[in-house]
């Protein structure tokens, strides 16, 4: 069902230009990013290149540089930027009154993929 959101924590708990992780039992770990302009994005925490943990990368603009080999991944689309090719699934997420909410369906999709 769309429109069904899970509260995963306070926005303030994610550092500006940083990320936090959310574990999913039976699913893939999710990285929740907070950008310099204070927006939130979420991706499956797995680089399309060699599965680097995107949550550990440097966040700049609406992109994150993977900590392993520095691919740049768009937070908006999950696509690798520049000449690299690959895509990491995005997870619907939103901030509301200082809380971070992710879509239950999207989380379920990671569980099914895993």
């Amino acid at each position: 069902m769309t429109g069904d959101w899970i509260d995963i924590g306070a926005l303030a708990d994610i550092p500006l230009r940083g990320a936090r992780t959310v574990q999913v039992v039976g699913g893939e770990e999710i990285a929740v990013f907070r950008t310099g302009d204070d927006r939130v994005f979420a991706l499956v925490n797995r680089c399309p290149h060699k599965a680097g943990q995107l949550s550990q990368g440097i966040v700049h603009g609406h992109a994150v540089a993977c900590p392993l080999h520095n691919w740049r991944i768009s937070l908006e689309t999950g696509e690798a930027l520049g000449e690299d090719r690959g895509c990491t699934p995005t997870i619907a997420v939103r901030a509301d009154a200082g809380r971070v909410l992710i879509s239950r369906d999207a989380v379920r999709a990671t569980a099914m993929a895993a």
Binding site: I8, G9, V22, Q23, V25, G27
Partner: peptide
Amino acid sequence: EQHAHLGDRPLVL
């Protein structure tokens, strides 16, 4: 926060 997951408990669906 560098060493812990957000929400402390894993999500169970």
